[in-house]
Design a protein around this nucleic acid. Structure first.
Lengths: 137, 137
DNA sequence: TTGCGTGCAAAGGTTTTGCATGGCA
DNA sequence: TGCCATGCAAAACCTTTGCACGCAA
């Protein structure tokens, strides 16, 4: 990325404002269109690739529906996402960031006992969050 | 599923013989074509949906490439997959089934300390397996 | 001015759907 | 025979690519 363009600014702004969430490419398109600042499809995809190379966002593939999700990592607040685990609620879609001693041991255990090097940036736990579980009951 | 057809038998046979692996829809198509028992694309997809509803297979979406993977769950041997974790190598694609005391504690910990009910059937750890790691070095 | 970035349209791949035909029970 | 299942083709998705034009530096 050598040039700074209005399109890139808009896309990055939306992503950073949605920090901690999983955003789909289509949501970016729709959002910018609604705000009378439409951006081309290919621009969005190309810039997303670009941001991934810079490790400013991360890509996820979701279980049910089609299409990938992207998550902003840029600000200080979430740079440590590389070092912890994520829980995603299958019901409400909310993403939780979990970082505690026990969780830190998981990677170590898997490496030691199972010879497998876990990539936290790709791994997501799926399940039901407390809020949704209570609502179901 | 009310009727038993040759196509369904063939698809289910291949899936059950690949127990423990992640199979793509296209692999089923290709395999059956090579064995001179070709089956229509839509039949495969429709039957896969059917098997999912019966909880005989599980669907995964993979990180990089396009397309979903399906895993057979039917026989006794792997019903306990619901109770352990899976590690998938991002390089060779192999799927490892991990079931040990430590791993069992993960769900309990996440539920207790983070109020999140993990669904093991949807959760996959991504990373690099021992074999691939050595080959890279 | 230079050459990267954009946007359109077309292509690519996977999955779904419509519809006439085939085949199980 | 009654219906579900099949298979083809077309459509629907998401994503990538080609190309001419626009715009940042």
């Amino acid at each position: 990325m050598r040039y700074n363009t209005k399109q890139r600014e808009l896309i990055l702004k939306y992503l950073s404002e949605s920090e901690g969430k999983h955003i789909k490419a289509d949501e970016i398109l729709e959002y910018l269109k609604k705000n009378d600042t439409p951006v081309g499809k290919s621009t969005v995809y190309r810039y997303l690739d670009n941001l991934m190379e810079q490790n400013l966002i991360r890509k996820y593939t979701v279980e049910d529906g089609q299409g990938a999700c992207y998550q902003y990592l840029g600000s200080e607040g979430h740079n440590h996402c590389k070092e912890h685990y994520h829980l995603k609620c299958s019901k409400c879609g909310e993403l939780f960031h979990v970082s505690c001693e026990f969780m830190d041991e998981i990677s170590a255990h898997i490496l030691e006992h199972h010879g497998f090097t876990v990539d936290n940036s790709k791994t997501v736990f799926y399940g039901i969050c407390k809020k949704c579980k209570l609502q179901i009951v």
